[in-house]
Design a protein around this nucleic acid. Structure first.
Lengths: 197, 197, 197, 197
DNA sequence: AATGAATGAGCCTTCATTCAT
DNA sequence: TATGAATGAAGGCTCATTCAT
């Protein structure tokens, strides 16, 4: 029953995602996931051999989801207004920032840090670069159709993503208010478009 | 006695700092620090009861050092040129970013994340805000004396610090090239001053 | 039904025999046998409840085969020459010795040792004594018809079997060369008959 | 405190020897040895990392003892009578055989079998060959001084050792009576000397 | 103060055995 | 019957922490 197994794996992934969001990467034990997912110790080992394997699968499923979202956004570049797309993009980023102490950023950084020597791919780089690229395309398109005035979309996108990354991390650790996030986003938008307060 | 003890504590702190920079916060064990500092298991417990206690002391010593540096910088605001001070400030930040996979940022985030519920103060917030404040003062002063053209120093400083924070984290995990850092810093400076390539 | 079941049991026994020969007794797990026999975990339990039960059945099937062989040999005592029978007997023993690291001797000893307290019959004693008895009969018959000159066939048979047992064990563990085995067998035969080199 | 450690190691070895003699090699767990030696789980790991390491140390200590005994015996070859030495040698072998179900032979064979592929040295071969060599020297010396009449000491020694090995294994598994052992030993001695019943 | 051996709690992993399908 | 997922007991190992010296 491959389907049955998939359902189980999905259940494990869902619960594990919560655990990683709540505890980070390193301090998560198989026991934590066993308890969160409500299956037995041995049962978990049928599907996954280590927390790392589970974490990588969590990342993969998130990646899949994000790639899909990014693809959709790029597809809409021609039809939709750039400002509209930008707002949607930033809203997503904001949502992720504000998940704050319950998002996966810290876990991802812990993991990336833990295996920085092993040449393992943590996905963090890909995630960052993909988002930057999407943002760059939105800006470039907005330039073309006159919605934005942005000399160097690549540079602006890169800078914005670093700042957003910084906010994610701060949010995940010491916290950040929604108002503060809005302020930052508006500040950044003003560099290439008019924003009312 | 007390002096002797201080010497010992300092030795432990120095070695522990290296360990935390290399391994992050969570995966550091007392054994790691025992081995790094070359004193005995029992000996270490005379001075510190846990890795957390040691880590907090590491943070404290760094804080002290940075507060000193910041105070110096503020003191120089009147005498020195703002551009000069800014360059010095950014050079320090760049240095920290480029320490990359061997800086304490990840450890600090891990710690801040680990104790985000306990209301313990991780120092990360203070560090961030202090740096932002110094930067803001530099910008404001530069505005006053015509070196910079920066409408909202507070907003600019905040944004820059988030981007710098983002770079620190990326540097500590997936890596970042010096060229890239320079590019970002130059981009940010251009918002309020002229920078040659 | 019953026949079908017998076929299955035989399949299991065959594969299990290989497993025990390769891994000994104690370190064989149900999983090993499941994998070797290609049936399911649950399926195996329909036929056998433990590795011990399987092993005992393996022993039984070997015993049955050997008893048959021994019976044949005794039956031929009158018709065939004693020297000829002896050679056949020793050739069989030699074959078993040289199976070396893939024979069941070690597994049998492990099993016998494991249940030496429980009063369970490991079959090892029976196997040894039966072989000794057959050998004794061959020697006695050879004495009668003048082929051998052996004062005490019982003692000789017993001694030979211990030495053969010793060789089996050495073969199964540290290894033994065919030349060495031949030398030993020839040496033993010379005690009661003439053997050319 | 190297001495302190040695005492502890010796205690562990002594208790572990009993455990291996009683349970063989494979089924011995660290827990068994922990319980037998009365120290804590973690404490045992200070001295040994695995049952294999302990077992190898057990073998080493036995080897050392036997090498000493063998050396003594060879040293006495000139002074003492060969028959006397032979009796002493066989008495030792008999003693070992009759330890029966509590000797280390089975454990040694289990170990040798377990690591027959890895090229690890189990010591079983060395033990066997050393004993055979000593026996051969005793026989040769007895030949020289007329106490024995033994054409080929090497062959006789080898054959005897295999038979003795066979008895050890049988004794360790299915058991053997002292009377039976005596009978076998006397039978073997008669091949080269006169023995009264 | 200093040492490092000793302790035991806790996590990892495997495996015999059961059970729903 | 047959399957293989699921369970939980048991053993391996590490590490924070204590304690005799």
């Amino acid at each position: 029953m491959s389907e049955r197994a998939d359902v189980k794996r999905q259940l494990i992934l869902d619960k594990a995602t919560e655990v990683f969001a709540a505890k980070g990467y390193r301090s998560v034990t198989m026991k934590d996931i066993v308890e969160a997912s409500g299956i037995s110790r041995g049962g978990l080992y049928i599907y996954y051999d280590s927390t790392e394997e589970i974490f990588l699968d969590v990342l993969k499923s998130i990646d899949a989801w994000e790639d899909e979202a990014n693809k959709n956004m790029v597809a809409k570049l021609k039809e939709a207004g750039s400002a509209e797309l930008l707002l949607w993009f930033l809203k997503e980023q904001k949502k992720e920032i504000l998940k704050g102490k319950n998002n996966l950023s810290i876990a991802m950084y812990e993991y990336a840090f833990a295996c920085r020597q092993d040449g393992k791919n943590s996905g963090a780089k890909h995630k960052f670069e993909t988002a930057a690229l999407v943002l760059e395309k939105i800006l470039a398109r907005g330039n073309e159709n006159g919605e934005f005035d942005c000399e160097d979309p690549k540079a602006v996108a890169s800078n914005m993503m670093y700042a957003i990354e910084g906010m994610k991390v701060m949010a995940g650790t010491v916290g950040i208010s929604e108002k503060k996030v809005d302020k930052e986003l508006v500040y950044m938008m003003r560099q290439f478009m008019e924003v009312e307060d």
